[in-house]
Design a protein around this nucleic acid. Structure first.
Length: 964
RNA sequence: GCGGAUGUGGCGUAAUUGGUAGCCGCGCUAGACUUAGGAUCUAGUUCCUCACGGAGUGGGGGUUCGAGUCCCCCCAUCCGCACCA
């Protein structure tokens, strides 16, 4: 064998390890560059070929940047906390830590074979105490800060306390769970416990009774992004809404900054758009609608008392949010969500039974049922009326599921003519519909004839009092001004983004650094961190329904700030219970990129020097599935640390590329229905109904040809299989499906490395297509890349496999090939287009082979060029040429732009297999003049032998192309 | 429903960014060397046509000397959000 990758690759991997080639220091005269991959969750299944795709791409970029003279930080680690290891523990009793370490070792083994340039000295694992110490530390800071909307940043909760003592809530504009209003005297009059309760309302990490996504099957609550279509992302179990006391992070306080920050980022538009949608900023107005006092006399006392805690106005009223204040003249009913606290207080005795029935029906519906029946209209009339503050009309108040508790105020003004949901509701319950917007001035029609509402925010107001005739945009502003003047509303902004629920009733996660003293949540002192995860006897919830940490023997906090055995609590009043929930998966992954900057620091999360040097991640590669989870939380985390003066940049990830998902390509054999020992080759099937397709392991199929012997050996029931062959082969069918064990279509990278080598795997994964694009895995083409390497090898080895180079000066044609290649590859890498660079290398080697070029200086440059893609063969070539140093310390070759431009006519070694000449002409040159100028050129004669050109393309500007 | 993207040979893809459409690779066809080849090399391979020639980048229209690329209208596929007022 000539190109012996299995000898070359381990040799150079060891060489890099011995030399610590990829070790990075935190200071260097070189410019810094930070290339990061989303770290993996080490699952039991190991890596499949989809995982390394992004790692290979970022590795190429990191290696390229190093060769370009940058000090590159390119670390790797593990997102090691998570549900699968814990589920496995429940089933088998194996401790999740054991499973996790085992899986990590397997991942590491697989990664090492591919030849990545990670600095493994900086590895982090989120489940290790020295790492999660800082996750807990950040949580404590979040607990100790609140968000001040005027300063537009997080401020210490201690300053808020001082403020309350001095002036109460006067002039305070802060993010909170419930709006509050009190004076300094009131604050002073409250006891410690109540004061703490009030502060909890403002903390960025807070405890509150909130509706959560409860997954009974997993026994835990889940964040919004962990639930899709009413099912848990992990496991696909049903999720229900439930009111529970939980820790949350006040991510919503940062909503505006999370939207604004997107602009300066070098992310794809689609990803930014997903985030914008998820944050869901919408501008509108908050308006107070007074209740109709006369028609609600019998229910008013209760309602009045309830509402006056928000609004001390004499007339009881409730708040709605609308994005269409201009349509307020078209309101024909109001709708409250079933959870609205006002319902009980305003419902008339006649309607009471019906309303209660509806509310309890709506509350007991699962999220899934509700979402599945979105189009179905349901609702009930409360019997109460509100007053439209601008028209003083009496408006019926309804209750319906289509109004959501979690958004706005859970109450709306319904304008059926201009909102499709209100329209459907009005039609269903026969409520009036009134047009207040028209496309043309004064052109109105009868809304009872409409089949749909007119939702667009264009046209003019009609039938709308003082805004009639105005454009919609102006009318919005005019209505807001008017309600503002009347003191019954104001312009406001609402976000769809909710706070992130931060507790999980699970074992395998970061413990909260929190204990409860007389029911008040306190954080443990920072110097006591980390609070280590205790061992438990069982991973299931306790008999009393507490999270698994309830099983821990030593899990309470004493006054000497020590973790102690909980049993002491019974006879010792100075021992306090610790929080039993643990943190969710995204806790550890929200700030891991900081820790890589300074991974061994025990005094701080990361040093000031380290963060000042590295700043933030320049280039981040990972899947788009994290768009509304990790990438929001990490940005929030970063902004918070920025407010604390720790982060230097407000955004964590400057440039981001989403690698596409790799799907599986399954193979099928077709079993005859008439004879279940008989398998018919794909091309011979006459009728699809005669055969049953059966998934067959892709490892016993090559280029869709079945290895019959391996198939017979694969499973006992196929041992005596018979085949109907075409041309002596059994051809399998194929289909694109998810890569999964059950479909036998998982391609394991180790198998490919063993068969073709890491360099071939790396190149082939890039060759498959643009990194960003989702594509099926297809091993069929890998031979082509493998052939390329063999050809490359033969370029500088003779028939007997002896190294053989030519020391003479390269010819201009050879230089032309080299410079073209340098130019193309450099440009391709810069724009992250690695599939085209691979093509470029193939063309280059083809051209050099046909020129029989094995010139030392050309190969020298080529070794460096190919090093980011195929580091092993590049290192081997480098040592054959230089017998010293490492290709990793070389510098990137520079191409000569002038040489390429000036000589393009003279040296037409082309990239498309045909000869093409390009010549510059004067701007006013005519076509005939151009053609004769070309034909007369000495070099044209030289290269074509004076043959008549096949085709001449005249481009008026000043270029002419001739194809020979 | 709203938002975002994509559409090029049998297949994966490319196109100097408005200038030869199909580079490179897979597959396929023929040939060479071989005891043999799942090795290597050479030639061919968008489609129709024996050929001359013609058609052609999802479909239709437009701008331009010139459109895969820019603009408008459809169609299809994929992804994200989904009663967010």
């Amino acid at each position: 064998m000539d190109y012996n990758f299995s000898e070359i690759e381990p040799k150079w991997q060891q060489f890099w390890r011995d030399r610590k080639t990829y070790h990075v220091e935190n200071d260097s005269p070189k410019p810094h560059y930070y290339v990061l991959d989303m770290f993996p969750y080490p699952s039991g299944a190991g890596l499949h070929v989809g995982h390394p795709l992004g790692y290979i791409a970022s590795d190429i970029y990191a290696r390229y940047k190093r060769l370009r003279g940058f000090n590159v930080l390119h670390p790797m680690g593990y997102d090691a906390y998570g549900l699968p290891a814990e589920q496995y523990a429940i089933q088998t009793g194996t401790h999740p830590a054991v499973t996790t370490v085992k899986n990590i070792n397997r991942y590491r083994e697989q990664l090492d074979k591919i030849g990545f340039s990670f600095d493994w000295d900086r590895e982090v694992r989120t489940c290790e105490p020295k790492y999660y110490k800082w996750t807990q530390w950040t949580f404590i800071q979040l607990f100790k800060h609140y968000y001040d909307n005027k300063a537009n940043k997080a401020l210490p909760i201690s300053s808020l306390k001082e403020r309350f003592a001095k002036q109460g809530t006067e002039d305070l504009d802060a993010a909170c769970t419930e709006p509050m209003n009190f004076s300094a005297d009131e604050w002073d009059s409250w006891d410690e416990a109540y004061q703490q309760q009030v502060l909890m309302n403002y903390r960025l990490a807070y405890l509150a009774d909130i509706p959560v996504n409860w997954c009974a099957e997993l026994g835990t609550v889940l964040a919004n992004d962990e639930v899709v279509n009413g099912l848990s992302v992990r496991g696909g179990y049903p999720v229900e809404r439930k009111l529970m006391r939980q820790w949350s992070l006040r991510v919503s306080a940062y909503a505006q900054r999370l939207v604004d920050g997107l602009e300066q980022l070098d992310w794809t538009d689609s990803l930014k758009e997903i985030q914008r949608n998820w944050i869901g900023r919408s501008e509108g107005a908050a308006v107070w609608f007074p209740l109709d006092v006369k028609s609600n006399e019998n229910v008013l006392p209760g309602a009045q008392a309830y509402m006056q805690q928000f609004d001390p106005q004499p007339v009881p009223s409730f708040e709605i949010f609308t994005t269409r204040p201009d349509t307020i003249f078209g309101v024909t009913f109001m709708v409250l969500c079933p959870e609205h606290e006002l319902i009980d207080r305003i419902t008339t005795p006649e309607q009471k039974a019906e309303v209660e029935a509806y509310v309890s029906w709506a509350k007991n519906r699962s999220e899934r049922e509700r979402q599945a029946e979105v189009k179905k209209v349901s609702g009930v009339f409360t019997g109460a009326y509100a007053i439209n503050p601008l028209t003083e009309e009496r408006i019926p108040i309804w209750v319906s599921e289509y109004v959501l508790a979690g958004y706005g105020t859970g109450a709306i003004m319904a304008v059926p003519a201009h909102d499709s949901r209100d329209f459907a509701f009005a039609r269903h319950f026969n409520l009036p519909i009134r047009q207040v917007v028209a496309l043309e001035k004064d052109v109105v029609s009868d809304p009872t004839t409409w089949t749909e509402s007119m939702d667009a925010k264009t046209g003019y107001s009609v039938n709308s009092g003082f805004v009639t005739g105005m454009k919609v945009k102006d009318a919005m502003k005019a209505v807001i001004d008017r309600i503002d003047d009347m003191g019954i509303g104001h312009k406001t902004v609402n976000f769809r983004l909710r706070d992130a629920i931060f507790s999980r009733q699970r074992y395998w996660g970061e413990p909260f650094p929190v204990y409860y003293k007389n029911g008040i949540a306190c954080t443990i002192p920072e110097e006591c961190l980390p609070l280590e995860l205790p061992d438990v006897s069982e991973f299931k919830p306790t008999a009393t329904g507490e999270p698994p940490l309830g099983h821990a023997e030593k899990w309470a906090w004493d006054e000497q700030n020590r973790c102690v055995v909980e049993k002491i609590k019974i006879d010792n009043k100075n021992v306090f219970p610790l929080e039993l929930s643990t943190m969710p998966g995204f806790a550890g992954s929200s700030g891991y990129y900081f820790r890589y900057m300074d991974p061994h620091n025990d005094e701080a999360y990361f040093s000031k020097e380290a963060v000042r040097y590295w700043q933030n991640v320049d280039f981040y590669v990972g899947g788009a599935e994290h768009a509304s989870g990790h990438l929001i939380y990490a940005r929030f985390w970063n902004k918070f640390l920025f407010d604390l003066g720790m982060a230097v940049k407000e955004e964590p990830f400057q440039k981001l590329v989403n690698q596409g998902m790799i799907q599986g390509r399954s193979n099928f054999v077709y079993r005859s229905k008439a004879d279940n020992k008989l398998f018919i080759s794909k091309g011979l099937i006459k009728n699809n109904n005669d055969v049953t397709p059966i998934h067959v392991d892709i490892n016993i199929v090559s280029n869709d040809v079945l290895d019959i012997d391996k198939f017979r050996a694969w499973r006992p029931e196929f041992a005596d299989a018979q085949f109907e062959l075409e041309d002596g082969k059994y051809i399998c069918g194929w289909e694109i499906e998810k890569m999964s064990k059950s479909m036998f279509n998982v391609q394991n990278p180790d198998d490919l490395v063993a068969r073709y080598g890491a360099d071939t795997l790396r190149m082939y994964e890039m060759f498959l297509g643009p990194v960003e694009q989702a594509k099926p895995w297809d091993t069929n083409g890998i031979e082509g890349v493998f052939r390329f390497f063999k050809k490359f090898w033969r370029l500088y080895h003779d028939d007997k496999n002896n190294f053989c180079v030519n020391d003479t000066e390269p010819t201009k044609a050879e230089l032309k090939v080299l410079h073209q290649t340098i130019k193309k590859v450099t440009e391709d890498i810069e724009r992250f287009s690695f599939n085209t660079s691979v093509s470029t290398f193939m063309i280059c080697v083809n051209d050099l082979a046909s020129l029989k070029c094995n010139k030392r200086s050309i190969l020298q440059s080529l070794a460096v060029l190919i090093a980011p893609f195929a580091p092993h063969i590049a290192e081997e070539l480098w040592h054959l040429l230089n017998n010293e140093s490492s290709v990793c310390d070389a510098s990137w070759p520079i191409y000569d732009e002038q040489f390429l431009a000036e000589d393009s006519f003279k040296y037409p070694v082309s990239f498309n297999g045909k000869m093409r000449f390009t010549i510059d002409l004067p701007a006013d040159c005519s076509q005939d003049q151009a053609i004769s100028a070309v034909k007369e050129a000495a070099d044209y004669q030289k290269w074509t032998g004076g043959k008549e050109p096949k085709k001449i393309i005249f481009v008026p500007k000043r270029i002419i192309n001739i194809v020979c």
